[in-house]
Design a binder for these strands. Structure first.
Lengths: 254, 254
DNA sequence: TATAGTTGTCTATATCAATAGACAAATTTT
DNA sequence: AAAATTTGTCTATTGATATAGACAACTATA
């Protein structure tokens, strides 16, 4: 009953027409994927446009549109007469575990890593936030909007909520230290754990595109997490968006 | 420096033009997202087409194209003169942890849950597979292709590899028991741990669309995992694709 | 130097995506 | 019963997407 495969060559993925996603966008996504899994190697030349057109069963101009988009994104470089070359570095691998902070654990992967506070706002808690933080609905919470950068590229976009009464001034601490962990220590929280994390994915919306410097049609990984003190008291509720083309999440300490 | 928000209403997400992703597909995705986060409630009517067109800043016919796609997918039902209604159940929440098997932990969420073996093939190990299983490159491995179903809907699509010599006949065990855990027990593996999991997301390719019964443009969550015996010997390497519109991953025991 | 291979640019045409307006058909409200 | 609301269908027009072919510009190689 079991079969034996004769050869072991890469699967030829095909393309969906009249799908609402243009062919050039689908091909651009597949090229990105091929780079990510090491099918197209860094610094090497892509197959010629005619060969790609043949592989995907489309016109050469359609392939050119895909390549143009990736050149625009800084993933490829095209040189007339020579070929098209892969520039992209590998995706950043974010560790996620009970005690892993987002800004930690990236040693060696990116030389410059920082978190930029975009906005701090006091607002009444929505039902979702109130439930997560175990507050009364409508209680004041502080919402922090922050962007994570590595080597000058945007790699994360986080929205997090804290109880306003307990953590008044956390925005200033964040702006100063650039770290949630360091900021929480000023409020007497020396240790905290990741209670739950829920993971999903969707297309980037307009805000994501602007904040993460993405091209339309990009995909974001979304984590929704609740952090608690060791005795189980919720202190932070956070939704973080990661550009799927630049980041993968490594679940550690499982 | 901190600001105070006056009102607390849902953010109006907007739409990207000339992006390679058609407006109707973007709106369909946003409607799915709104349903997933509980913004549009199950069984309730969607806002009228004109209101949606206004919200997204597009023509009514564009909204109609988005709704038509979701009706086709079975997410919405439109009734002339009455309105358009949400049919979709919530997304399935898959637990992932050190000892969590994919087929376990879904009690109460789906009444009927099963795994279907699609194909079993012996092939030489690629570099990726050989590295993960600590085998010589080109050593024989068994590749199993399986689809997970819940309530008649496809919710996962897994490709997994085992060392052929040690696990010869695992395909028959899988077909019989429908469970990886039960099959491994027959080979003397009574316990195993998830050594590592790497998570990413991408657009569904043609194979995913067919296997998971998705519409073009859909997004899949991808987990790549290595399972090991308690003493650290790798036994299974698996890549699993989940339709992001139907599944979220809940990271537990972190 | 000549040739082959590759990317860049142009024109032309057909199809899909989106806008616009009008009205029909069905349902709910007044 | 009449009016208002909502989905369904039709025509027409514009812009983006995709195909096709030809040739220019540049690079590497025989």
């Amino acid at each position: 009953m079991i079969k034996r495969a004769m050869v072991n060559r890469p699967v030829a993925k095909s393309i969906e027409r009249r799908s609402g996603v243009s062919l050039w966008r689908q091909i651009a996504d597949q090229i990105l994927h091929s780079i990510a899994i090491g099918d197209f190697v860094e610094n090497a030349a892509l197959p010629p446009e005619m060969a790609l057109a043949d592989r995907y069963g489309v016109n050469r101009h359609t392939v050119r549109a895909a390549i143009a988009a990736l050149v625009q994104e800084g993933v490829l470089r095209a040189e007339q007469g020579r070929g098209t070359f892969v520039l992209s570095r590998k995706r950043l691998s974010y560790p996620i575990g009970a005690r892993t902070r987002f800004s930690a654990g990236l040693q060696g992967q990116a030389s410059e890593r920082r978190s930029v506070l975009l906005e701090a706002i006091v607002e009444p808690a929505s039902r979702r936030v109130a439930d997560a933080l175990k507050l009364a609905r409508g209680a004041d919470v502080i919402r922090l909007e922050a962007r994570g950068e590595a080597d000058g590229q945007s790699v994360s976009r986080a929205t997090s909520w804290f109880e306003a009464r307990r953590f008044a001034g956390i925005d200033a601490a964040m702006a100063e230290t650039g770290s949630i962990t360091a900021s929480l220590e000023r409020f007497g929280v020396s240790d905290y754990l990741r209670q739950s994390t829920v993971l999903s994915a969707r297309h980037a919306d307009a805000a994501d595109l602007a904040d993460l410097d993405l091209q339309p049609g990009a995909i974001v990984l979304v984590t929704v997490a609740v952090n608690v003190t060791p005795d189980g008291q919720p202190i932070q509720f956070a939704e973080t968006r990661f550009p799927a083309e630049r980041v993968e999440l490594k679940l550690s300490a499982l």
